[in-house]
């Protein structure tokens, strides 16, 4: 199981990296941590002519917290998020969700940008991005653009990135105090890809009713998505036992049309599971 032959470039600037991608017209691939790309190459499922390594490109490895939210550079690793002092307060849902990513060694090398670009339907980072209305910044030959996470993923292992574009970072909107949140995922073994998962948050209005609910799911459909039907059940209501049950039911129904089955679990199982996870997430939602 040896990798196919390719050339390797290690540009010092983003502009140069983008130019190499453009020159190779879709035959080049970006590598950073490589924790998703390397197995793909080992299985010879991809055979790029050149790999463009971002490790010498400056400025992509920063975590920035401002009043506009949390910005993660594309080369921020899972272990950076895990060990960051301010993030747990600035975005507790993000930190909790990322704690489920893969195993120790992979967490030391896998990156935010790599996960977004790989777009595995069961991966945590894409799911968190969609659930939280994050914006992904990308740089191409023609310049930079911001893409809403909801518009970024267009299928399993597929995004709207052009071949000359590189993800530079992602911004999560600011996290207001008092926000309720929960992250629940289900895998048979520690560190495995989730068979299903849910990231949700909502705020409380003056009367103690839920509003601004965001419910994102992973591992259930071809790409991460928000369940607006569930959000509608939650918004305007007090989160108590009956509502939790109603939301769970709505979740199972909401995914019915798109739920996928594979060797790890059938569509029916995932549909049942997502209801349980939404129920648990809502019941355990914390400040």
């Amino acid at each position: 199981m040896k990798l196919p032959s390719f050339e390797y470039a290690c540009p010092a600037t983003l502009a140069e990296a983008v130019r190499i991608l453009a020159d190779h017209e879709g035959e080049a691939k970006v590598i950073s941590g490589g924790q998703s790309l390397m197995p793909v190459l080992a299985f010879r499922l991809a055979a790029p002519s050149v790999l463009v390594d971002l490790r010498n490109v400056p400025g992509l490895d920063r975590i920035t917290i401002t009043e506009n939210g949390v910005h993660l550079g594309a080369r921020v690793r899972w272990c950076d998020i895990e060990s960051h002092d301010g993030l747990r307060k600035a975005h507790p849902l993000l930190v909790q969700g990322i704690s489920h990513v893969a195993h120790y060694q992979i967490r030391n090398r896998g990156t935010v940008g790599g996960s977004l670009a790989h777009a595995d339907p069961a991966a945590e980072m894409p799911g968190l991005a969609v659930a939280c209305d994050a914006e992904i910044s990308v740089q191409g030959v023609a310049g930079s653009r911001l893409i809403k996470a909801a518009d970024f993923f267009d299928g399993a292992l597929s995004t709207v990135l052009e071949f000359d574009e590189i993800i530079t970072g992602i911004r999560f909107p600011a996290w207001p105090s008092g926000r309720r949140w929960a992250f629940e995922e289900f895998a048979r073994r520690r560190g495995d890809f989730a068979m299903a998962g849910v990231a949700l948050h909502f705020d409380l209005d003056a009367a103690g009713r839920a509003c601004n609910a965001h419910v994102g799911v992973i591992g259930v459909c071809s790409h991460p998505c928000r369940l607006t039907a569930v959000e509608e059940v939650i918004n305007g209501n007090v989160v108590e036992e009956d509502l939790v049950a109603a939301a769970a039911k709505a979740a199972s129904e909401a995914v019915a049309a798109d739920v996928t089955g594979d060797m790890h679990a059938s569509a029916e199982y995932r549909q049942a599971l997502i209801g349980v996870l939404v129920e648990r997430a809502l019941a355990h939602a914390q400040v």
Binding site: F186, R188, M195, A265, S266, E268, Y269, Q271, A272
Partner: peptide, 16 residues
């Protein structure tokens, strides 16, 4: 004894 087989036995999803 996979989670799916257990839920099927419990009747929580249709048995295949």
């Amino acid at each position: 004894f996979t989670p799916e087989r257990i839920l099927r036995a419990l009747g929580k999803i249709p048995s295949s």
